[in-house]
Design a binder for these strands. Structure first.
Lengths: 377, 377
DNA sequence: CTCCACTCCGAAACCGGTTTCGGCAATAGT
DNA sequence: ACTATTGCCGAAACCGGTTTCGGAGTGGAG
């Protein structure tokens, strides 16, 4: 942005004929032989309008298809009835297949109250903060949905400082002494999902269960690892730091970490991946080591991306309902903008296990597995 | 929508303190000891402002971080500096991995001129038209990007009737006597890509080349099939209707059509798929028929989805630059809204071939291929 | 009958910009 | 020197709603 933001580069000579067909509040009022203030109050639910008049106004509004111009109301109310979300455009695992579902959920929920969704993308962190600020300054939006929250999230600090309504998709401040007390969020409990995954694998008879986490800067990574640890102790298994790897977001990174686990002297007979993408990265590694997934090694993923069912064997994973997430986030955010207290607007939901063919009872002990890998090399 | 759209269900009592810190045009003018009309005209490029004053105003605006409220300007100008796109949320192949890139491109281009992008989703065709109308009526957007255009596209008719600016991602009216003359569009030439694919395969020595198209309601399906036919004649090959199938959008549908082709007495030794997804659906079919893709059968896809490179063997395809598409569409649309004629705002771009391992010289004749398939069954 | 409270509506101010119009001063034209 | 033009700016109207405020009408209590 080298240009002065306040300088408009529109050509002032380019005129546009006024939109015809639109009925304005004035006209509606004239037709009803009422003042426009009365009509406005009737439509906006003021108490000092008689029920009969209100009905009459509402009927006429419906009949004429009257819709207030959102910016005309905004100039007085200060609200444009829009929420925004700003995406990272530089994500390494950027091709989120659920973006459409997520957006659809948010749009549908917003539409219920006649709100709309504005979207933008940012190339970097400073860019992100700049865009958030501009969008709110120009009042393109009344509040923000912040996806993919980090442990220390500068967006949260920034928006809180500016007193801008916002809601997180995910939680923040993991392990910090003072987690933000007055933030609202919606999240899907990855920790319980991973907890269940551990217990499921332990139930199959696995005793050495590995875990490959994602980028530690994200809050969900820590939560899922916590779920892994709690699952182990719930299953009566001990926690072996050697079996825990981190930082795998892409297929390639997943492959690296999984290979490291299997190259151990005591390799895990089952591996839980914090993301499906990383889990899919393990498939070619297994093939290379001469291992059959679902028999020699068990694998469980998380996210429920469509590729799971097309992998060989299909990947057991936890489905995340992105549409619902978008929907809940939008409604909670709108309620916050309308005045509810942020700390009362929090929801935690669950991912649902989809059992497929990538996991099952162990056919080899850890020692036998190590042996087999050695033989195949 | 059973509720009356004109009835606001916001609680009128829920107030919000005026945003502090924002500098208004009045205040800027007062500080400069100018009238606010002068300041406004200076920032908007009017000619009747002296260069010295203009500079002074621009500097002060920058210094104070002045940003006009978009809805405040909109009330007079009639424009909100926003474009919108409405996605289908009910697409069978809905998980478009490029949505983020596409959105990013549009947002970046829009941001260059300080415009924003609002997004919405529709569940059905009537819903779509309703949402388009509402978004424009309430002036949440000044114009629309219409993705995934159909041969007969009701959105185009609707928006043209309402005199609403719009641009198509893709073309429309294939084969109709009166293709819409005054519409603007951006498209990537699938026909030349498929043309190239045919010539590439013919160059390898293939003489029986099949084609699996997508849904015929979409314009691009016809264009790609046209590219297929033209490619054949350019390569001196005859067009065999038996080798052409249609209607495959998903992996499953791709599998069905591909299987039908290979069950022919004279099966094709190479198949071009109009979409990567359909092409990937062919992979398990080939395995089932005992065929090795890249040797026994050649396959070429189109779209360049990320899964191409993780398939076995990696799928030769044509990469589509979605970010560029979004970017061009946004800039063209904004120019149209600013007054340029729609028919002058059209651009055609090219997809780029990514050679991978799924195609090559034929190792079997059509007869031998048929024989091999028979043997494996 | 008077007074008061309450219901319901209209007049007008207001939100923050943009645009029109007119006027003053300086310059150019004759 | 006197007018005509031009350059530059301020006053005020304007956009389409929302919100405040006051007042007319009604009914009940005293």
């Amino acid at each position: 942005m080298t240009t002065n933001p306040a300088v408009q580069n529109t050509d002032p000579l380019a005129k546009r004929p006024p939109v015809t067909g639109r009925v304005k509040l004035d006209e509606l009022a004239a037709h009803l032989k009422l003042s426009k203030s009365t009509v406005s109050r009737a439509l906006n639910g003021y108490k000092d309008i008689s029920p009969a008049t209100r009905k009459r106004v509402e009927n006429a509004a419906r009949q004429f298809g009257y819709r207030p111009l959102s910016h005309a109301q905004a100039i007085r109310t200060g609200r444009v009835r829009a929420i925004a979300m700003v995406l990272n455009s530089d994500e390494p695992d950027g091709h989120n297949p659920f973006l459409r579902d997520f957006i659809a959920g948010a749009c549908e929920a917003a539409g219920e109250s006649d709100w709309t969704v504005t979207i933008s993308t940012a190339k970097s962190e400073p860019d992100m903060l700049d865009i958030l600020g501009r969008l709110f300054e120009e009042r393109k939006a009344d509040g923000f949905i912040l996806p993919r929250t980090a442990v220390k999230d500068p967006r949260v600090a920034h928006l809180r400082a500016l007193n801008v309504p916002h809601i997180l998709y995910g939680r923040t401040g993991y392990g910090q002494r003072t987690p933000p007390a007055d933030t609202s969020w919606f999240d899907i409990s990855g920790e319980t999902a991973i907890h269940k995954a551990v217990k499921r694998l332990a139930g199959f008879g696995h005793t050495r269960i590995g875990f490959v986490g994602s980028d530690l800067k994200f809050n969900y990574t820590h939560l899922r690892r916590e779920g892994y640890a709690n699952g182990l102790s719930a299953a009566g298994l001990s926690y072996d730091p050697d079996l825990v790897r981190d930082g795998a977001r892409t297929r390639e990174e997943g492959a690296v970490e999984a290979r490291a686990l299997l190259k151990l002297d005591n390799p895990p007979t089952a591996i839980i991946f914090a993301t499906d993408l990383a889990a899919l990265g393990f498939y070619p590694v297994a093939a290379e080591l001469g291992l059959e997934i679902g028999r020699d090694v068990s694998v469980v993923g998380y996210d429920g991306i469509p590729e799971c069912q097309y992998a060989h064997p299909p990947l057991t994973s936890f489905n995340v309902d992105s549409r619902m997430a978008g929907s809940r986030l939008a409604t909670l955010l709108i309620r916050q903008i309308r005045g509810e207290h942020p700390e009362t607007l929090r929801e935690l939901s669950e991912a649902v296990l989809i059992e497929r063919a990538s996991d099952g009872p162990p056919t080899l002990t850890s020692e036998q597995l190590a042996q087999k890998i050695l033989e195949n090399h």
